[in-house]
Write a protein that binds this DNA or RNA. Structure first.
Lengths: 354, 354
DNA sequence: CTGAAAGCGCTTACAG
DNA sequence: CTGAAAGCGCTTACAG
């Protein structure tokens, strides 16, 4: 048996669970001290070492597939370069799209993102407070819904940014929900509608309270009195939304238009309209909120207030990184929203609408 | 100025950036050695320390809000208890829902999930290989699309599980796409359809090749000859899908049913049918694939092959944890799919269909 | 311009 | 039953 024949097997065995190169390995190979390797990787070598030495080190590192051990860096520096995205529901397309932008921006800045579902108070403890006290992450991006208590806000102060939720303690990214809803209602008023309904989300969050107030206020400014018969609340379940919409549409002088707190709720209105034999937009105009993927799926395509999700993810991460760098940031940053007019809104039919 | 008046300000200042308790702090407070604290938190204290001592330690830890420093643990143990979910597109509702299940399962087992978008080969290098060599994560869950090259598969061997992608080197979770597509086509055949079209996803991935093959094979087994005029390919853009569907529907003897590779593609068929003046399911039956949120949004509600996304996230994490624990796992694990019959399929109208 | 050394906070084998 | 000590891999102030 020749030596050549043995080789492959031995190699295969050794390849099984290779251990990873450390800065010491790189130093050996490059013929320098371990600290020289660290210095080069920290970008603090210029003016302290020859160009040639630096190149030799990088070359050796490349050959060994070396990258600094993150855990060792984190321990030494007290910073992990991880941020946690706390979201209520990853499977919600709105959040998913925000995550996308956040991940890309974080990566550009050398940060990695961790994901945590926060549904209730217990999750706050198990996910956020735990990550904080175990030093797993440097900072938090909180997409509220089940918002933090004051105690938690104080604990994460200086390490967190809230999205779509107000706070006295923490910087927050505020979506101009009010402006968006105003644009939606004004659009309907300009088309000639006066009987304008509102299908609200049955969720106890500031963002939805703002939508309702903006709806009322815009009507008032136009001299239209709000009618509580035209208002209903629903969960995000389509069947539930459909029932709520039916209750509005069945009244004696039904509205000629309905604004919804979310696109999903608008889907319920579509279903209800079909059951009542109403054609959209001829008999009923509908406006959604979010511009999520469903807006272009329904027929006719939905007029809706667009939330620029990927911009939000990006801006939120930028804000957070500023906060972590202890830079001065404004308490409130506003992201404007825009109405996207599609095929679900039109002038009210006949003068019966007046 | 009294001392009492000064106090609040000083406290406020000190609360600014508190440093965190370490095991030494806990040991001091509990009056034991640092190693005793470690032992208790590692769950290795029973039989080595009195119950009372253990309780004293936990009490002290609770008072100080102590949790072991993750970076220090990771450095010492060589394991971070992080896993990376590599997905092509977080904003795709299918993946978002899988993430949900994966996060929950990982957390139950003491792992946290990191998120990485993998769109191209460069991302493989920057995200996956980087995480590997910097020891950031223990393992990888790869939701393919831009699948790893052989070199990468070997690098992550023993630390990774693939989803919906085959491999010789890595354990993989295989969805019974074939069975799902067969059920879809058989359902149409049983209803009496013989002219059955297929709208394929224009994505070069094994999962879609399998769908196409299963479509052809099921027709063949039923003695129906496939007709290439009834077949088209499209991206996931609705307008694109709609055009592709129109091309099928405009032929001289159009199909009475169309199976789609995804629910989003089915939306395109709905749009095209509407333009051609065809009513679903009277003039045309449509079957989707995924059972994503859109399936219940369109009208009539879509018959579709359901992919149990949260189960997949859960199973994939379980598999990965077994792999990481160096337990024996089967190379292939199959998840069955089920057809969900809703309102978009019916018997073909008249005998013109035969 | 380069190297030796301390120390981040933990786990665990070992000595008492 | 408990404590002192080594060492994981890195960064950085310091000495040469």
């Amino acid at each position: 048996m020749t030596k050549g024949k043995m080789l492959p097997k031995i190699l295969a065995r050794e390849a099984g669970r290779q251990s990873f190169a450390t800065s010491v390995d790189v130093a050996c190979r490059a013929g320098v001290s371990q600290s020289a390797v660290s210095l080069v990787f920290a970008g603090k070598a210029t003016g302290r070492m020859t160009r040639k030495t630096q190149e030799t080190i990088f070359e050796a590192a490349r050959e060994l597939g070396y990258r600094p051990n993150r855990a060792a860096q984190a321990l030494r520096l007290g910073s992990s370069h991880f941020i946690l995205l706390a979201v209520p529901d990853v499977s919600n397309p709105y959040f998913a799209s925000v995550l996308q932008g956040a991940e890309a921006t974080a990566r550009q800045h050398g940060y990695s993102v961790m994901l945590g579902s926060i549904r209730d108070q217990e999750d706050w403890q198990n996910v956020v407070m735990d990550a904080l006290s175990s030093r797993s992450v440097d900072g938090f991006l909180v997409f509220a819904m089940s918002p933090p208590s004051v105690k938690e806000r104080i604990a994460i102060q200086g390490r967190a940014v809230l999205v779509d939720e107000m706070s006295e303690e923490l910087p927050f990214l505020w979506l101009d929900i009010q402006g968006g809803m105003r644009a939606a209602v004004d659009h309907l008023i300009n088309l000639g509608h006066t009987r304008i309904g509102h299908l609200a989300a049955a969720v106890d969050a500031e963002t939805f309270r703002v939508r309702y107030r903006a709806y009322l206020e815009t009507l008032r400014k136009a001299g239209i009195s709000a009618n509580s018969i035209y208002q209903a609340r629903s969960s995000f379940e389509v069947t539930d939304a459909s029932k709520a919409a039916s209750s509005i549409l069945r009244c004696s002088a039904p509205p000629s238009a309905i604004v919804c707190d979310s696109d999903v709720l608008a889907v319920g209105v579509y279903k209800a309209a079909r059951e009542e034999g109403l054609s959209i937009p001829r008999d009923l105009s509908v406006v959604g909120f979010d511009d999520s993927s469903v807006a272009r799926v329904v027929h006719p395509e939905l007029t809706t207030v667009a939330i620029p999700t990927s911009v939000i993810g990006q801006r939120a991460v930028q804000l957070l990184l500023s906060v972590l760098a202890a830079r001065q940031v404004p308490l409130q940053t506003v992201v404007p929203l825009e109405l996207v007019v599609r095929a679900s809104t039109a002038e009210p039919s006949g003068m019966g609408a007046r």
